[in-house]
Amino acid sequence: MKHKTKKKKIDYSGYIFILPILTFFSVFVLFPMLRGIQLSLYSFTKRDPIFVGFKHYADLLLKSNDATIHTPFMKSLFNTITITAIAVPIVVLISIFIAVTIYDKKPAVRSFFRGVFYIPAISSVVSITVVWAWIYHPQFGILNYVFKNIGLIKESVDWLGDPRTAIYAIIAILITTSIGQPIILYVAALGNVPKDLLEAAEIDGATPWQVFRKITWPLIRPTTLYIVVVTTINSFQIFALIQLLTAGGPNYATSTIMYLVYKAAIIDGRHGLASAMGMILAIIIAIISIVQFKVLNKGTE
């Protein structure tokens, strides 16, 4: 937002207004973050913490150091990237499609569809995993029943237990919980595209696809940028679906970095290692966000 900035006087009362949030932020976000860097350099598996320098980082990133740490980490990193790389484009595609279809309809119609697609996002993730676990169940699940009846499969599939299908079964759920916000944003952005521009193009004989490609798409690009960045960050943080549905299994087939951090910290009690993983993850997310911003932001200025 641009504002006419008349030279404002320096107003020290501002500090009092931000003091409360700054206190919470410092104690519960900033301090733990700095502390996390320090912890990642120590080992806590013995009674007293031992300074180990960058050992955890090396164990995680180098194959030659400790395969029992490196292999699950690389598998989880690969899964996390796979999940993100599949989910993000589909989320963008579905949400833009839905938004284009509903944005110029009556407010009631818009509200209805916005609501339908937002409900998975605001429902408890636990409720969602509980029902999907049932839908996917090899014996009692409705998915096998339906797929067998329409001839898609012959034998029942253990969707979450089979390493070939488990990760896709999870991605499908992730997508349903991710498109609510993008739809709202796209509907708002499409509403701001000037009508006369679209009409002029149509009069000039442009097809709907050309109108979309040449006029609408460039104009809603900032929205797409934001959605891609936010959905990427969210997909990278996928945790509850994994912890509740597969616990990372079978044999790390669905383990993600977030899940591995949790497992190392809470289940295995390896606090130093968990902190190091957290740091690597934070760096990866920062790099991805910056790259996406740079790439997608080109030409919108």
Partner: peptide, 17 residues
């Protein structure tokens, strides 16, 4: 910047705190 940070990154120190 902090908004982009995943909560799990600070899991251990926060838990210790």
């Amino acid at each position: 910047c902090a908004m982009a940070l995943p909560k799990q990154v600070i899991l251990v120190p926060l838990l210790n705190l």
